[in-house]
Design a protein around this nucleic acid. Sequence first.
DNA 1: TGCCAATGTTAACACCGTTAACTTAAACAA
DNA 2: TTGTTTAAGTTAACGGTGTTAACATTGGCA
Lengths: 206, 206
Amino acid sequence: MARTAYHHGDLQQQAHAQAMAILREHGDSAISLRALAKQIGVSAPALYRHFTDRESLLAELAINGFEGLRQRLQEVDQRDPRQALIGIGLAYVSFAQDEPNLYRLMFGGRVLPLGVHPRLDEAGKSAFQILEDTIAAGRLCGYLKSLPLNLMTATAWSLVHGLSQLTIDGHLPSADAEPHLAEGVTSLLLDGAVAHTHSQNNEDTP
Amino acid sequence: MARTAYHHGDLQQQAHAQAMAILREHGDSAISLRALAKQIGVSAPALYRHFTDRESLLAELAINGFEGLRQRLQEVDQRDPRQALIGIGLAYVSFAQDEPNLYRLMFGGRVLPLGVHPRLDEAGKSAFQILEDTIAAGRLCGYLKSLPLNLMTATAWSLVHGLSQLTIDGHLPSADAEPHLAEGVTSLLLDGAVAHTHSQNNEDTP
DNA sequence: TGCCAATGTTAACACCGTTAACTTAAACAA
DNA sequence: TTGTTTAAGTTAACGGTGTTAACATTGGCA
């Protein structure tokens, strides 16, 4: 359906883009369907032709976010096991710091509960899968201890997620203020997870 | 000021209690000042005599939450360094799992940003202080490596916070489904942070 | 060409937080 | 005891929200 005075012609995509811009700048709570429609120059109910409700629009934004996160994690160099693990952690945290409002939406919990939007759940799993694969590889090649995989992934994910959340909420210093915090944190965890007892890094750094 | 047909007499406290009940059951987004006032049997603007706005009411609830968390952490047995550290972690996570909606409010980030409600910030710091003190003690007595204190606290806090958040949002199995996950996670981190290389737990005994 | 389905419209409902202006009554001072 | 101040309620109203119902326009296809 082409553009007309009556028919917008590209509403779905433009609404998505505009909403994403608002989200990134002011957070999910600043997204109002009425205001969004007004900005685009269309009536508010028109949006309901393309999104079943406000929440499903947010879900699409979050899906976009998970795809972006997944891509960032996929770009990490996987040749060396240790560098791969640290790289994943740093990429994860830097994504959150680059897109705090998007990250908060993705892991909001109450705003987008699990189990309501299947595509969203799948996008989240898909990003998480890379972390799990990296750990599984490090374990298989003998670099990591042979502890249960779900224990190791839960630990790693908890660490990077917690660090991300606490940083973007201001409870921990940001990467600008403490450039090596994320690396130190991931290294510290790794020291407990490597199979050989000689910790390669990270001791008595000032 | 005593109770009357006109004057409620106990509005501040009852509003607080009622709001906390709604929060715990349905989350912060379910708290509506108008509905709250109606439940109590008072007009909505009456609430503004006791709370400057909705957000400051939420802030008070979050302050209560931090005090509860702080109390839970303070009850942990501090005699053995390792048991103290694991105990703190478990207490932290179990608090979040017992009060998911309250925990989400406390660490919402965007709903109650840092720096807006000084008493809230202080309550948060006060709870965090216990974690830091425990780590500092473990370091001083030689149980933990002598890495920078802020690095170790950031790591520990990130881990327990991430684990809490991911668990209550359903991304990781709850304590019911995986009773030993939290303990395994904290132990795994600890293995990288202890000064002596003989990890006391959790390894398949070399 | 005529119809159908997609995609817009306006009007309306039921909420929401918040403020202004006014009222009641409790507490305190003369 | 009386008068006044002030804390703590009231109603009415403003501007905002998501969402639905009913109707209008129009592109694409038989």
